[in-house]
Design a protein around this nucleic acid. Structure first.
Lengths: 114, 114
DNA sequence: GCAATTATAAACCGAATGGTTGAGCATCTG
DNA sequence: CAGATGCTCAACCATTCGGTTTATAATTGC
C-alpha cells in the first residue's frame, strides 16, 4: 500500500530537535494542515517553513497529499512511537511508577495489553 | 544540590539524533563508564568521542565525576523522561487510562524555543 | 487571458556538526 | 624523576543546517 520510508531514529530525533518543527508536529496533532498554515505562526519565509516540512516528511513524521496547488499535510505517528519506544528503555518513568499506577488506575480491571 | 542545566528538548533531541551518542546512552544505562570506555566501541579518535560525551553532558543526559585523571560518567535519566513525556502526547500508543497517568505525573508542557 | 495564490527550486550565506591531528595537562606508576 | 595513561584543547576541514532572496511552476478565480 503506502510506501513508508524507513524512518530512522536519526531522522526522527533530528527532526524533533528543532522547535519550529516540534511546533508543526503539535499543530498537526489536531488535524491536517496546509504548508501555509504550518508556516504562518512562524517568523520566517514560506520557503524556510517549506524546508522544515520537508525535514518532517523525510523523517516519516508527515505525510503530504497534494490537492491542486495545496499540499495537505498530516501527522504520521508511527515514527513518534518508535522514538517513544526507544526512550522508554532508558527512562525509569515506567518501571518506577507503573506498579503504583496500576494500583491507582485499576479500580475496575479491564482488558489490557501491557 | 547539584546545579543542572535547563536540559531543553532541543538539546536532548539533538543529542539523541546521533547513533554514537545513542550507543553511549545505551552503554551508560547499565552503569558508570569512563570516557575511554564510552569511546572504545566506536571507530573514531578519543577526542571525537570526548566531544560526543560533552554533547551528552550539555544536554543534561550525562553527569561527570572527575576522579584523578579518570572521568567517570553516569546517565542522567530526567531529561530522557522529559523527551519521553513530550513524545507521549503525540503517540496514541497508550490507551486512555494512561492519560490519567499524565495528569498525575505531569512534568509540564513546555515548548522551549531557543 | 491574466493576475493572484500556493508551494518548491536554486543560489547563497553564516554558523554549527562531526571528524581529524597534534599539543598539552594532570595523574598515576615504576 | 621519567614515562605512560586519561582526557581535553585548539586548529583545521568538509558537510550540514537554518535562514535569506529571487525565480519558477502549477492552480485557481475574475
Amino acid at each position: 500500500m503506502v510506501e513508508h520510508l524507513p524512518a530512522t531514529l536519526n531522522g526522527v530525533f533530528h527532526a524533533l530537535a528543532d522547535p519550529t518543527r516540534r511546533a508543526m508536529v503539535h499543530h498537526l496533532a489536531s488535524g491536517e494542515r496546509t504548508v501555509s498554515e504550518l508556516a504562518s505562526p512562524h517568523a520566517m519565509s514560506l520557503a524556510a517553513a517549506s524546508k522544515h516540512v520537508r525535514v518532517l516528511e523525510q523523517a516519516g513524521l508527515l505525510r503530504r497529499a497534494i490537492e491542486g496547488r495545496v499540499h495537505r499535510c498530516s501527522l504520521e505517528r508511527q515514527p513518534l512511537v518508535q522514538a517513544f519506544s526507544w526512550l522508554r528503555a532508558y527512562t525509569d518513568f515506567w518501571d518506577a511508577r507503573f506498579d503504583a499506577l496500576e494500583d491507582l488506575l485499576n479500580a475496575g480491571d479491564d482488558d489490557d495489553r501491557a
